[in-house]
Design a protein around this nucleic acid. Structure first.
Lengths: 262, 262
DNA sequence: ACAAAAGTGTTTAACCTACACCCATGC
DNA sequence: GCATGGGTGTAGGTTAAACACTTTTGT
């Protein structure tokens, strides 16, 4: 292909620094945000999926998401969708961009470029998930058989959402290694054992206990001690409680074992 | 705002799992790829910029990039643009997605969502940069005064490209820490001193020599020894030469000093 | 001989691993 | 008492940081 030729043709250009362009004549194209909302519940890492009511992929499970509106930024759209889908407002969730998926044909209806995000929320009672509780649920990641063959009870994922979820899961697992993001899964206040159980859920095994505590407590700003307004509920020794600290990175990281479990 | 309402209105939906949609009636919107092409030349980390010939931002410097075509994936578009802009074909460059920038108003002409990429190329004589050699050049990153106030001779960057370049520079600097990507900047074969000079250029200082060598040589697959077809050119001891190995990650990383220079 | 560039050795301190042990509570 | 869940101490091995030193070439 003749390089730099197409960009120079009339009607081309655009963001291109050389030519101007004509807003008409663009093929219909949509930009959406997709959300991979993770939580840890009952000892399992789970992701929010919505059951599709119409074709294509009717009956399959998909990531929540929606269009980026005309006068709205991409990040803004993701925050709005997250609030809409979970019903949670003013909740301390973590949100970050994952990657953009734009292969032609990923949506059979039209060209859709989707900016996928990762959100982490604590294990709260979610008031409403997607407006239609029956059609939305948190699926344990291990039940999705990502990367393995689908079996009888594995939900089918719409579009390229299996790829997106797989990328998102890997992002979450690796971010637990070198950031303090595990605390984003905990409802405050939390014990160090709670925090450690996040790693157990996400990785399939937990870091060695004594070393884990030392690591967390010696990392300035990972957690901060909470008032020990202790309700002695359990039947073991009552734990010390903490809240999320201002730190974000963790160095040296808490490394996973190389042969990643699950 | 009534949650989950807009997505359900007729004509809405789309990627939305609930409603179908009508391809007409989408506001004109373009998806582009922007490229931050880095190289190390004369001991400096440099990024490829193109001088704009027309408004908006006429005369300012911008990242090379262009439209994603109708039947083309985002990654594919980035590869095509990279080949077009640099004139390099079948060159072992590294290309990865950086992030997507989609704030409304980032391009005054229309809504443009841009998927930014980072490319790393060795210090090769670039046959043609953007087709118009006069309008394209590699700028030393330190001359862009990113994050600092512009001074007299600082080039002005178009659109939000200062943000994108800053993010890209940070990505490159941090990836040198925990990946073997430094080798992507070297022309093969290269010496360990060459490789170390990449760190010097990118970080403003170089890792301690002895530890650096041990690190690189003890990391399986970072570099592989090359035939010592040695042309004794220099005036010191001739170096052993290497080529890029198959490894991609580096653990433990070669950490930067926290008070990042420049 | 000397400078320049490349490459090596050695000591020290940090810190992660592993594993054994102690504390507080409910039954 | 004892089971259960929390929390602590300590010995040992690995390895990265720092710095001094040796080798090979050109002039």
């Amino acid at each position: 292909m003749s390089p730099a030729s197409v960009r120079r043709t009339e009607g081309g250009g655009g963001h291109d620094p050389i030519a101007g362009y004509d807003p008409r004549g663009f093929p219909p194209l949509a930009v959406t945000v997709d959300l991979t909302v993770f939580t840890v519940h009952a000892g399992l890492l789970k992701v929010l999926l919505v059951r599709r009511g119409e074709p294509p992929f009717q009956g399959d499970w998909a990531l929540p998401g929606g269009f980026v509106r005309e006068r709205e930024g991409v990040e803004q759209a993701a925050r709005r969708e997250l609030a809409e889908e979970t019903g949670l407002v003013d909740v301390p969730w973590h949100l970050e961009q994952l990657a953009t998926y734009g292969d032609p044909g990923r949506d059979p209806r039209m060209r859709v470029v989707s900016v996928a995000h990762v959100a982490l929320i604590p294990d709260l009672p979610v008031p409403r998930a997607g407006g239609d509780a029956a059609a939305a649920r948190f699926w344990p990641v291990e039940d999705l058989n990502l990367g393995r063959r689908r079996s009888a009870h594995t939900p089918r994922l719409a579009f390229d959402h299996a790829t997106i979820v797989a990328d998102a899961v890997e992002r979450v697992r690796s971010k637990l290694e070198y950031t303090t993001l595990a605390a984003a899964f905990c409802t405050e206040p939390f014990s160090l054992a709670d925090l450690r159980r996040v790693y157990l859920a996400a990785w399939g095994y937990a870091p060695e206990l004594a070393n884990f505590r030392r690591k967390v407590l010696s990392t300035d700003g990972f957690v901060v001690p909470d008032q020990v307004s202790e309700v002695p509920g359990g039947r073991g020794r009552p734990p010390l409680l903490y809240r999320r600290g201002p730190a974000t990175t963790l160095y040296p990281p808490i490394l996973r074992e190389t042969d990643a479990p699950e």
